[in-house]
């Protein structure tokens, strides 16, 4: 059980770290897809099957495609995919901040008395989830629907409008 968890964790963390360090945007996006797959495997390991499949559908299926479209729409030439490396000062300060946050979080985790109750993997059926979503959480479900509609309409408006006074439209 714990060997599987360690395998999933190492795979996910390694692909995420390499994706954040690479210079080619397409390679970064593909490695992040591997990392999202690793997270879906973790959700399956933890017994949350519905969330695992939602993760695969939303992240591996949809968000990765949107990211790849954005990468391909925002390059100027065929050689434009490589991004210049960050300056040394920025990289070092970012690593310093990340290491500090990691140390603080790890100390907090080890200092907190966590009550670990069960050892068996819990299960929650889709029927139970649906009853929860439609019963006590129906208002939140409606709000999420409104958010998704508004956000997608806003994305279309942002990405598709041409400014009326731009150079192309000038006489």
């Amino acid at each position: 059980m714990n060997a599987a968890l360690a395998f999933i964790a190492v795979l996910t963390l390694a692909s995420a770290a390499v994706a954040m360090a690479l210079r080619n945007l397409i390679h970064s996006a593909l490695l992040l897809i591997a990392s999202w797959f690793g997270l879906a495997a973790f959700y399956l390991w933890a017994g949350a099957e519905f969330v695992a499949f939602a993760q695969v559908l939303v992240y591996v299926g949809a968000i990765s495609m949107v990211v790849l479209f954005a990468v391909l729409l925002t390059r100027r030439s065929r050689q434009d995919l490589a991004v210049e490396p960050a300056s040394l000062g920025r990289a070092l300060s970012a690593l310093l901040v990340g290491a500090t946050v990691a140390v603080v979080l790890a100390r907090a985790i080890f200092a907190t008395p966590l009550a670990v109750a069960p050892t068996a993997t819990p299960t929650i059926s889709v029927r139970q989830l649906g009853a929860q979503l439609m019963g006590p959480h129906a208002a939140a479900l409606l709000v999420v629907g409104v958010i998704l509609t508004v956000a997608l309409l806003g994305a279309v408006v942002l990405a598709a409008t041409d400014r009326a006074d731009s150079k192309e439209n000038a006489p």
Binding site: M20, T74, A106
Partner: peptide
């Protein structure tokens, strides 16, 4: 604790990436 350390490491990788890269997509 193993799970929490896993998620902290993932969070810090994302934080370092968001702070150090200059490309908006990254």
């Amino acid at each position: 604790q193993v799970c929490l350390l896993f998620s902290s490491a993932l969070f810090c990788i994302g934080l370092v990436g968001a702070l150090s890269r200059s490309n908006a997509i990254l």
